[in-house]
Each structure stands twice: as C-alpha cells, then as structure tokens.
Design a protein around this nucleic acid. Structure first.
Lengths: 419, 419
DNA sequence: GCAGTTAGTTTGTACCTCGCACAAACTTAT
DNA sequence: ATAAGTTTGTGCGAGGTACAAACTAACTGC
C-alpha cells in the first residue's frame, strides 16, 4: 500500500531542513536560526498551545503567547485554509460585551496519525486523530522467538488493515517498542524478551512499505508523550513517566521537550544501582533498581511471605488485599512502593522534575498505590523550600496512552519545537 | 562603588525582554520567538562558536553554522564596532590561494566580568576577560558562624578591590557558592558549613551595591560552566561536572545548555541512594552516595584499615602511596573509585551524557584516578553499541575553573541561547 | 440608538537571512 | 610579468516574519 498525495502542509514542516544537513556534515556544533525556521517554530508553538489548553480563540492564543493578535492570525490562517484547524461556533461573549470569540481547534477530519505499539508477542495498531481520538484499533500476535520475515509480514498486514480506515493519507506512523531502541537511526537494538526484533531496522522497512514518515521510540517515551498530550502531563514543562512491570524504565520531559540522549538513549532507570553489591540482575550487574522494584521481586517476596497465588501477584491485587484487611499484603505493598520510591527519589535528586506519572504494575494499584509511593518519596528526598512532589497515575489506560504517545511522536518530530 | 556607564552593547542582549514578562504574568507556557529575539539568539550562537573553536574568520563561522557569509558579516560587524570583537592579523592563505582570512576573536580590552567564589570561610574574587584570562585575584576570609553584616562588608570590600582594577565597567558579576542556591531568585538557601550565608539574598545586595547585573549559582554549576568555557567540556554539547570532596555534587550540560531545574535546583547527586538502608547520612537519610564516596568515608576507612595519617587522607595521597607499592592504599583506592563510579553509573543510565569531568578530591588524584573510575563505570554500566564513556579531570585547577565558571554564568545569562 | 468593549483583519514598517554580484588579495601556471 | 583561479568579505535587493496602528465586525448595557 502506498499513499501518494502527501499533504502539502505537513504540520508546520514545510521545507526539508537542508541547512541542518549541511551544517552537520562538517560536524558543526552551532546552528543559527533562519527566518523560515522561525516561522516553523512559532507555528509549532501555537499548535502546542492548542494541545495544552484545548480550543482557544486567536485573541486568547495571542495573550497566551504574549504576541500580537495579527501574528496569530498570520500563523493560523494558512492552517485553517489547509483544513488542519477549524473555527468552532462563536463562544458567548464576555460579561463586558464585545465581539464573540471563535475558538480554534484541530479538524477532526484532518489527516490522522498511524500508531503501533510493539510489546513482546503482541502488536497493536490504530489511527489517532489530531484531536486525540483513537480509531480502528487492530491487534495481532507474533512469535517473539520466531522468524523475522513472518514478523514483518504480520506487522505490515496489521498496519495496512488499520490504515485502510483512513480517508486520506496519514501524516505518518509512530512506533513504540519495548527494549532498547536507537531512535536516531530507527533501529530496534535489542529486546530481551523478543529476540526476533533484535537489530530490526523498522523505520526503513515501514517507510519503504508505506511511503510515509515513520518514527520509532521506546515504550516509556511513548507513555511520556501520551501523558503530555492528553494525560496528566498536559501543559506541563517538566515531568517524568515511570514504567514498572517485568522491567523498569522511564522517560523525561525537560524544559518543554522530550529528553533524548545520543541515538535515543536515556531513561534506562531499571539498571541504576540502589543497592551496591545487592542481588544479581538480568543485566549481570548487582543491586539494580529492577532487582527490588519490578514484578519478579514482588512475586518472590509474595512467595517467601506465603501470600496466596504469589505467581500472579500484582500491585492491584495487593492494594485490594490490603484494603480487605491483610496485614501481610499491606506490609508487602509498603515495601514494594518504598522500593519503587527509591528510583524516583534518585531521579528527583538528579533532575528535580517534581512531577511523576506512573505506568504499568504500580499504576494498576491506582491512586492508593501512587499515594503510598508519594509518601515514601517525600520521606526519602532532601526537600527544598516550597517544593511539592506530585505522583499520579494516568487514568486513561495503558494501551491507549502508549498508542496515543506513539502517534504523538510523529507530531513532535514534525513540530520541531527544538531549535 | 558605582559603575555608571553600562556598555550599550551588552553581549547581544539589546532590549529588555518585556514580552517574556508579559507572557509569564498570565502563566503562559508558550512563547513565540520574535525577530529581534532571533537576532539575539544568533548573535549568541556566533559568540558561542568563537568560544568553542577559538578565533575564526567570518567565512569559517559561516561554514560552521551553515549560513551565508553575509549573515555572519551582519552579525559580527556591529560587535566589532562596539569593540567587543577584534579582527586579528590576516592568516596565511590556504594552499589553493585566495584572499587571506581575518580571524575574529574577543577583544582583550573589552569590558571584563567580575567573578566570586564563595566557599565556607573563604572568599575569592577576580576579573575574567572575555578571552578567559584571569586577573586581579583577591582573597579574603570570613567567619562561617559569624555576623552577617560583617560578612557582607568583607565581601563588598574584597569585590570593590578587585573591580577597581578594571578600566571600564564590567558586564556583570557572577557568584559561585557552595550549598543550596536558588538561582532564580538569587538567594543562598542553605550552606551547612557556613550558617552565616543561610537565607542571604546575595544578588539583590550586590546588585544594589555595584549597580551591575549579578548572577549566582551553586559551585558545581560554576565548575560545569568553567569546564565548558575553556576546560575539557569545551565545544561539547552533553557532559556533566562531578564534584567530590567533603560533599558530593554535580551539574549537567544537556543539549548545549546548562541544566537548571526550578529555582536552580538539580544535580544534588550526593543524596541519591546507592545503598538502601545503608549508613546514615548528614541529611538524615540512609545510604546516600555521599556516605560511601565522600572524604569522611575515605578517612573512616583509612583509619579502619590502619593507613598512615588517616585524618588527612586524600585521593592524591592514595594514588601516590599505591604507586609506591602500598597494597592497602591500592585496595582502598580501588574501593573509593568504585564507590565514586556508582554515582556516575546512575547518572549515565539516566541521562547517557557519556562524558564526565571530575573535580575536587578525586580530581586531585589526576588522570590515574580518573582512569580507575572510568574502568569501574565501564564495568558497571549497561553498554549500548558503540558507546564510549569519557571521564577526565580538569587540569586547569579547581579555583580557576570555578572562578572562570562564575564569570561564564554572567555571559550565559546574557547570551540567552535558550529559546 | 449610542457608547463601550472585545475579536479579528488590513496596511505599512522594521528586522533578519539569503542569493547574487563584485572588489580585494593571494597562489599557481605560463 | 601576466593571466587564471580561488577565497574572503561587502553592497544590494528579495523574501519572509513579527509588530503597531487603524479599521471593521459583533456584542452588551443603558
């Protein structure tokens, strides 16, 4: 399946950044900002403001950004003509009177975004509208230890089926995957639990097959973007997404942008050391955070303490059993959330993001579990004056956040807010 | 002492950013970039390129930044007229011939920067030229537990003496201080070892006294800026400065800018946990990195192992004794550098900066100590393909790096590369 | 019906980068 | 010595962007 007609107005990404290429060829570490880049930046920021604040009138946007109303008109008008944005019904005017404002927001019928969530054994694909709406979810399974060609066939088939629901060519495809990802080169470096994915140049494969822009990033980063887009991180400039489950991971939103180290590294929190010479970890080192705050630890402890069905213990069950009066469950929940807290404490001492969104197993324990974690963090951190630490769970639901985040990856790679 | 004539060309900071103020008043989280801001940004980047690469011709700068030569001329000409930059002698032309290039660099006679280093009990002040040269160093002492007015008098007297060596009004004064600093509001929040400084609104005091722009930040951040300016971090886009000594701290240069959390927080690495329920720390928590990698730990272990003069043990001495054949010193050095490595490992797993500059006690151990730390880090980190970790010491010398960094703080607060 | 208020647009201006053309200065080949 | 080729640095006009002032549109309240 090939999409022919690329929308001429690809989300503020008008001209390919040939200057960047030229500059990077000679290894320049400095790039000046050109006028046209300035336009793209400001277009991106206006869209960002719309995501952060919901539908807003031109005048509101101007006030929000501290710029002239005419500037906003200039930025917004072409996007309305391209049918990326739409004017809503006139809002009732203020108490003081005046011409009623016409709120602007994303056109639900604008091209959508393709999203793929790749976890060991399962594929999920869907379309995401610019309004955040999720459509045409398709699921499939694959053998994590199987044949590479078979996997690629399954993936393209699933994605083709999903994309066929779109009326027009999507802006691009975003992929979120477990494991270690090189997002710069679009390659899956390694997934311990799904060797078939190891070394897969997925971006090239999908780009060729669908003739669409494709971006890939690792799972926690997709969760982060999903949180930022329509979740608890909405409008925030600094926060982290933390994933707990069979493994631990994290991703950071720093000063208004997603943190990505070289080749898309960063956030491999599972293997930070919290116990020098502690238990051995999957990675071969000792005392990683993952050895005391992931599900394998929880199962082992549940078994040791004689809790019922330790093999299928989760934070959610632990919260429930503790509420039902089990002292043992309560005690274990306390130790579990404390161990989870240590990783967050170390992150807090390092970056002081002050805001953390939990995903995965601990998030399954809901607000109760999050509050326990928060209390441990508060106790364990060196507080600065008037500093509030917020720890929340994303109520939207794991899969949807990751898929939306995968879609958001495409957006953020196009609205280069970074300069 | 009051300086009257502010240079009209304050390092690319032409107009006060009144828009930012307007936008922040209504709590906007989005700011559009204006034309004049763009000019300031690009001016800043050209200066940055000069710092990173040394004297360069207009044509070289244009190539480095990937822009037109005429653009560089437009940026650079006013700065030459303001005598901020000077044209050097014509360089011999290339093998292929052509008009010889005229390298540009900072005018040694341009206004300088005032710098202050404030550590418990001691004050150091100096002038720093835009070329990095340090002049008119003045030192003084103060009673860490003494009277606040007395301290302020000593500080202003010292600084006045230093500043009197300048021919013209400096661009501003940068202060680096130990302890916890609120750099947004210019207040020293707390210094455990010097209570007289606690709660001191130093920026206001100095600004009023000298009528100059004043910035303050904590010690590791000054080291970072010093490293970046003329040290091992020169030209780098991502690295961290790590300070070890009586306490531990760090600061990060991320994606080409100094990382500062809310109110100048961030980098309080000493109190990240590396040993859950480990030894108790000064901060009241258990198992902080500081409990196993700072000088108190080293002294305690040296005493326990019966090393000579454990009370004055340092990394430098340990390296020397190990070289002289002491097995005990060698073993302790290995444990010490390993413990130091754990903090760096955790930082590496979190941000993947790949490059670390050591300061303080471990830096006193020179390249040998750094190499030991590097080997431990290599062993303890989960490596990504083709990832090199560099750990260096700054050979320029502690005090000078911090002073130069303090001066650099003024520069970087004026060449707002951040958008 | 009119004053007051707010939203959005039109018009002209200022600023910035870019591409082109050109003079200046130097090397190499004849 | 002269000509050709190369590189540096500078005017000049074009194109794009944000801004300010002035205007129209639409609504409220008296």
């Amino acid at each position: 399946m090939k999409f022919e007609s690329q929308p001429s107005y690809s989300l503020g990404h008008r001209t390919p950044a040939r200057r960047e290429a030229a500059a990077s060829e000679i290894g320049a570490n400095v790039t000046l900002v050109s006028q046209s880049a300035l336009g793209a930046i400001n277009r991106g920021r206006v869209l960002q403001a719309l995501y952060d604040n919901g539908p807003k009138s031109r005048a509101d946007l101007a006030r929000l950004a501290g710029v002239n109303r005419t500037t906003i008109t200039g930025i917004v008008q072409p996007m309305i003509e391209e049918q990326l944005l739409v004017e809503g019904d006139a809002a009732p005017s203020d108490v003081k009177g005046g011409k009623p404002a016409r709120p602007l927001y994303f056109n639900p019928d604008a091209p959508m975004l393709g999203a793929v969530l790749l976890l060991p054994g399962t594929i999920q694909a869907c379309l995401v509208a610019l309004t955040g709406e999720i459509r045409a979810v398709t699921k499939a399974e694959f053998d994590p230890f199987g044949d590479r060609q078979a996997f690629i066939a399954t993936l393209t088939k699933t994605l083709t089926s999903t994309l066929s629901h779109a009326h027009q060519a999507p802006f691009g495809i975003g992929v979120a995957s477990g494991g270690m990802i090189d997002s710069d080169n679009g390659v899956i470096l390694a997934v311990n639990l799904a060797p078939v994915l190891t070394g897969l140049p997925l971006v090239n494969i999908l780009q060729e097959h669908f003739s669409l822009p494709v971006v890939i990033d690792h799972h926690p980063r997709a969760l982060l973007v999903g949180d930022r887009w329509f979740g608890p991180g909405r409008g925030q400039q600094n926060f982290a997404a933390i994933y707990t489950g069979e493994v631990l991971g994290g991703a950071f939103f720093i000063d208004g942008k997603v943190y990505r180290g070289l080749a898309g590294s960063g956030g491999e929190l599972g293997h930070t050391v919290v116990q020098i010479d502690g238990e051995i970890c999957n990675c071969g080192k000792h005392g990683c955070w993952e050895t005391v705050a992931a599900l394998p630890w929880l199962r082992k402890e549940a078994a040791r303490l004689g809790l019922p069905q330790p093999g299928s213990i989760t934070c959610a069950r632990l919260v429930k059993e503790a509420e039902d009066g089990s002292k043992a469950a309560d005690a274990l929940l306390d130790r579990y959330t404390r161990n989870v807290a240590f990783g967050i404490v170390n992150l807090q001492q390092t970056l002081f993001l002050n805001s953390y969104v939990l995903h995965g197993d601990v998030a399954g324990g809901g607000a109760k579990a999050a509050e326990r974690v928060r209390q441990h963090v508060e106790r364990l951190v060196v507080k600065r004056p008037s500093q509030e630490i917020s720890i929340t769970v994303n109520g939207i639901g794991e899969g949807h956040t990751a898929l939306r985040g995968a879609a958001g990856l495409v957006l953020s790679s196009h609205l280069k807010v970074v300069i």
